[in-house]
């Protein structure tokens, strides 16, 4: 007796198990980042008038804009890789998945440049509450990117053999990882304005 609905949808809920699972996980992630966003608001109101804005001037807006574009592109290529599987085109899948990983890597490299530039100017998490929350939020977001990359890489090369044995389940896997990836992208879309622009 296998566990039911690992691949096919249950008719009354319209979901397969992992799809519900990933949505629940994302709900908890919303609460995790929600907690940190409310910390941001709390600290911003607690700081002297305009201090957060002023401290934020140290950040590099052009680099962050570039990073935003890179992440959005990676979301697009992520969708394309899933769509390729739906069209049974494993070659295109490989291409688009590779591009997604490349974007993710690019994002991390830029983030690294930003971080080291701050350290060179003797700016650390301990400098003030703005940089405390800046490093914590972007650091945690970066960890989410790295976690995502590990899974993407797995699906790109070693896990791909499942395509031959159970293509439907493999497509499902790419779909739910895609959902996660879009979420991480979305978090950045929130982080960018509140940290760099406001």
């Amino acid at each position: 007796m296998d566990i039911p609905y690992t691949v096919e949808e249950r008719s009354d809920t319209g979901l397969f198990n992992a799809k519900l699972g990933i949505w629940l996980f994302l709900a908890s992630e919303v609460m995790l980042f929600g907690g940190l966003f409310s910390a941001y608001i709390f600290l911003r109101f607690g700081a002297p008038d305009g201090a957060f804005h002023e401290w934020g001037q140290e950040l590099n807006i052009p680099l962050a804009t570039l990073n935003t574009l890179i992440l959005i592109s990676s979301s697009v290529t992520m969708v394309m890789s899933w769509a390729s599987l739906k069209l049974q085109d494993i070659k295109k899948y490989k291409l688009y998945m590779g591009l997604t990983l490349l974007c993710a890597l690019g994002f991390l490299v830029i983030k690294y440049l930003e971080y080291t530039a701050k350290f060179d100017h003797h700016i650390f998490p301990s400098t003030n509450t703005f940089f405390a929350i800046y490093f914590t939020l972007t650091g945690l977001h970066g960890l989410h990117i790295i976690g995502g990359m590990i899974v993407l890489f797995y699906l790109w090369i070693p896990g791909r053999k499942m395509w031959l044995s159970n293509s439907e389940q493999f497509t499902n896997r790419v779909e739910i990882v895609g959902l996660y990836w879009h979420f991480v992208d979305l978090v950045w879309i929130f982080l960018f304005p509140i940290l760099y622009l406001l």
Binding site: A27, S28, E29, M31, L32, G34, G35, L36, T136
Partner: peptide, 13 residues
């Protein structure tokens, strides 16, 4: 599912 993550963020802070 929904109440623990804010404590996780608090623990990180």
């Amino acid at each position: 599912l929904l109440a623990f993550p804010p404590l996780e963020s608090a623990a990180v802070l």
